[in-house]
């Protein structure tokens, strides 16, 4: 049981550190990178105070798995999911219902696409030169990873 409790406790500590930092000073840029740094430093702290060093490998594996699941979920919380926003907007009308034209007015290009381009810019995945967007090396790696995997599954463009 000890093998489960300690990594989970350290993970909760990392989440708490994240929440406190976000409350004190919300970072406007490189949020994922900052989050990775928080989790990495709390991991180092966990290894230092680990009660039984023979279980360090188990601690690292479980903590990193929890951290990876959290880091992957974070962008979904940060960015408004269009499906959830559509559901919420329809619910706001109660029994009156909502026509598609109204939805298109509520959720335009600025909200759904341009805001995401700005996110990519602030995360350093794209750069802007003379009015055009280009992939940075990390953006190119990410795009290659996803398009390669989708090609392997024979899937069309996502989004």
């Amino acid at each position: 049981m000890k093998i489960l409790i300690f990594p989970v406790a350290i993970f909760i500590l990392a989440v708490a550190v994240h929440l406190v930092i976000w409350k004190i000073s919300f970072p406007l840029k490189h949020r994922i990178l900052i989050l990775i740094n928080i989790f990495a430093w709390v991991l180092v702290f966990g290894i230092i105070i680990l009660p039984d060093f023979s279980q360090s490998l188990e601690f690292i594996v479980l903590y990193c798995s929890l951290g990876a699941a959290y880091l992957l979920s974070y962008p979904a919380i940060e960015a408004d999911s269009p499906s959830l926003a559509i559901t919420y907007n329809i619910a706001q009308t109660a029994s009156a219902g909502l026509v598609k034209a109204e939805l298109n007015k509520m959720m335009d290009d600025d909200i759904l696409v341009v805001a995401r381009i700005n996110d990519l810019l602030s995360e350093g995945l794209v750069c802007l030169r003379s009015g055009k967007y280009y992939l940075t090396p990390s953006g190119l790696f990410l795009a290659g990873l996803f398009s390669g995997f989708r090609k392997l599954l024979n899937l069309p463009k996502g989004g």
Binding site: S65, A68, I117, V126, F146, R150
Partner: peptide, 29 residues
Amino acid sequence: VYVLLGYCYFHFINMGQTARRIRILTELK
């Protein structure tokens, strides 16, 4: 650990399927 890794893999597939940022990156690529 397996459930957490499986969740990460599901998320990876889901991101490729629905994430707007990934679609924009693919268009730029």
